[in-house]
Amino acid sequence: MIQQTALGTVEMSRKAVASLVTHAALRSYGVVGMTTPTRASGLAATITRDPHRGVNVQIDAENHLTIDLYIIVEHGTNIASVATSLISAVRYQVQTQTGLRVAQINVHVQDLRHSSPQRMF
């Protein structure tokens, strides 16, 4: 995606936006992992440790973004609330850091995880 400025152009790859999205998503409460749309490819992505798995960024002719997120949610949380907070966090981070307009964010809850609480101290 290309942004024209008075001094020149700024080109940003979808991969760069996806990195930003992943960073925001993994800090959003209730999201305990990202995964790919299907189980089989998810396994492959886990093995390759692809940092962009679970995020799909589309851009239209007017530089508007559509972002799809494939997430794993912690069992015992309110999934609707987790997803709503995630959408807000991703939209905020992408729009403030890139200046691009986010037209749509779709959250796909692919799995739930029942984590055993880790002892923090």
Binding site: R27, S28, G30, G33, S115, P117, Q118, M120
Partner: peptide, 16 residues
């Protein structure tokens, strides 16, 4: 309280 703390931390991949 210890369980409450552990439970809170287990609900996010990257705690802030």
């Amino acid at each position: 309280l210890r369980h409450a703390s552990d439970s809170a931390y287990s609900g996010v991949q990257t705690p802030t």
